[in-house]
Amino acid sequence: MTAATIPTFDPITEAIAAVKGVPQTAEAELPEADGAVKTRDLLIIDYSGDLEKVWAALILASTGAAMGVRTRVFVTFWGLQVFVKDSKRITGQNWMQKMLSAMQRPGISHRKLSKMNFLGMGPWMMGRLAKQYGVASPKELLEAAQALGVEFIPCQMTMDMFGLKPEDMIEGMGEPAGAATVIGLMTDNSTPLFI
């Protein structure tokens, strides 16, 4: 039997053929605030400590809070390093924790780009461009987000793993919590984002 005799079935082609019309989203307007439609709570899981991702997370968090949306940011793994005080140089209790913090300096002002970091040239240029185009820095966005009531929840497990103490963290952080708290916040009334 040759391959040519097998009836061809391409599920992707079938699925495309089954779609009727093109979704009209480009010009969709936000619904009127008549109490009938409410924007859902925003839950951002900030996993990354990369400059560009932290920036995006903080833009969304501050905008969410500005729009009256209850906004929570769960900070975990590399994302937790962002919320360590800028003044902290070495954190942790044992040599491995200390070495990790030495290799990647914690704090919001010491973020690196995931691509094109070039020993700090990339972030430096990003900072220059941001200033030139009036883009708020991650630090400014963090201050705005906190002033507007964004809740930052540190991950207890990551705090333990990196040997971080509550006094290592910036002011105004929430009570440390775990994955169950985050899953519990993923309700019909929330939009979770993993950044």
């Binding site: 833009i59 501050s62 905008t63 809070a65 500005a66 729009m67 009256g68 185009y133 009036g134 883009v135 708020a136 966005l141 705005a144 002033a147 507007l148």
Partner: peptide, 17 residues
């Protein structure tokens, strides 16, 4: 003036508070 997204909104929200 001179500020980029999202600062006009953020500053307006702060003022309205």
């Amino acid at each position: 003036r001179g500020l980029s997204c999202p600062m006009p909104i953020v500053k307006t929200a702060q003022a309205c508070r």
